[in-house]
Design a protein around this nucleic acid. Structure first.
Lengths: 250, 250
DNA sequence: CGATATTTCGTCAAAATCGTACAAACCCCG
DNA sequence: CGGGGTTTGTACGATTTTGACGAAATATCG
């Protein structure tokens, strides 16, 4: 599929690029569909492309020799998959794959790094984004270490809400459990609690945010620092406006 | 204090630099003592220097508006404090400070970034180190999310052991608790268990590793991935040889 | 429509961890 | 030697999370 017109681009990083850099990058790009579980970066495998998410959600997951894994990075229309190529590193032990189906712009690694070499401002933009991801990683560790399921779940829902259109999040409890590294029925319980507090409404395979302010209260300090850093350095808002009782827009 | 002779340098990143890059960097550098709690990077404050650790240990800690904090990065003679300047980012929300007293080479940010601009190989070295720190961050999140105190404590001791000379680690339970984000007396209990397994011996304010192999078994999959990535990309060993019953060398 | 797979709900006892508190052991300094 | 601060050992109940299971509800597809 062809690249959409520049004005229709959703990806914030692409929006932040200069016209010249954008044109060079997209000369070689194409729009691809991103079905659930589609792999964007495999563990310890060089990847041929990076992918700018236009719609949907990807997760970066750290895993190891045991079967253990947790999500450490959240990527939506504000970011890209394959960030390690910004550091000119060929592979990474982390995996990245699609969690909520969508679409994205696929660019070859050569073209991407070539563009970075020519446009210093673009290179700096991606270094800034790299830094934001570092902060997000650090705060994933903080959340996992110091907050309980209640707050972590709210944090996770907020991060999804920031990165998806509308207020409906197509997520199963199973998936949330996998990402948070907790037991599935623990997620079920906590979702009920959060629903009882009036922040969300759940139906099978679907969670709707109805009071974002409340959700931010629940997440407490576990949410916010990486998001503010993104806005400071990239210059575009990532956090959604705090709509209360948004019973509209699915 | 003056910079030591190149051959006496302990820092692995400095060792990996070319002579020219090293000379440029150290023309402006000086050796400084690093007492416990000495701050190397403050939260959201631009720093004037970066610091290459020669001896001792620093921690990068993520914190937020609540009083919550955990260690997310471990820095010893294999690394440097102030890594975000490699990305040309002026500030970071994370703090970095000394945990085990030692010494390091202090270099001004201007000189450091100037050196990076002139020597592409050096720039790539630090990008590689950046990537290693990312992996470490990710695995801090993994450890916090999926491993219990027992394994996390062993992981932490191994990371200290890698970065300090000898087998003695000058650490109090209180400090370990702070870093791991757990209760102090929980650390006490677990240390007893690990001591009972014959991996360490503890005295007041001091932990001695006596069976590293055992310690690695205890840490299970929580330890190892970031270390292997470092060795792959930097080309120098970070993990200590597995000495059993090392009742020698303090 | 009916069969099948997926997703959700709920419950139990057990384990891990926490919060708090206090006493004992230890070290340093005067 | 003796005081004062630091570090460690230990205890208690409370809270959180787990592991394992089966039943109920809902989607999907032929």
């Amino acid at each position: 599929m062809p690249v959409p017109d520049r004005r229709d681009i959703r990806n914030l990083l692409l929006k932040a690029l200069s016209d010249d850099a954008f044109n060079m990058l997209t000369a070689d790009a194409r729009t691809i569909q991103l079905p659930v579980k589609h792999s964007l970066v495999d563990s310890d495998q060089p990847n041929e492309h990076v992918c700018f998410i236009e719609e949907g959600l990807a997760s970066m997951v750290a895993a190891n020799g045991d079967e253990e894994a947790v999500e450490v990075g959240h990527i939506g229309h504000e970011g890209m998959a394959g960030l390690h190529v910004v550091l000119k590193t060929d592979t990474t032990p982390n995996r990245t794959f699609i969690q909520v189906a969508g679409s994205g712009l696929q660019v070859s690694v050569e073209n991407f790094t070539g563009m970075l070499a020519i446009f210093p401002a673009a290179n700096q933009l991606f270094l800034n984004y790299m830094h934001c991801c570092d902060v997000q990683l650090a705060h994933s560790a903080l959340a996992n270490g110091r907050y309980n399921m209640h707050e972590r779940l709210a944090r996770w829902l907020l991060m999804c809400h920031d990165r998806l259109n509308g207020n409906g999040l197509p997520l199963t409890h199973e998936f949330l459990a996998l990402m948070l590294g907790v037991r599935r029925s623990g997620v079920t319980n906590e979702l009920h609690v959060i629903e009882g507090l009036g922040a969300i409404r759940t139906t099978r395979g679907h969670i709707r945010v109805i009071d974002r302010v409340r959700l931010e209260e629940i997440a407490a300090g576990s949410y916010g620092v990486p998001e503010r850093e993104y806005e400071r350095l990239i210059g575009l808002p990532i956090r959604r406006p705090a709509t209360q009782n948004a019973l509209s827009s699915r």
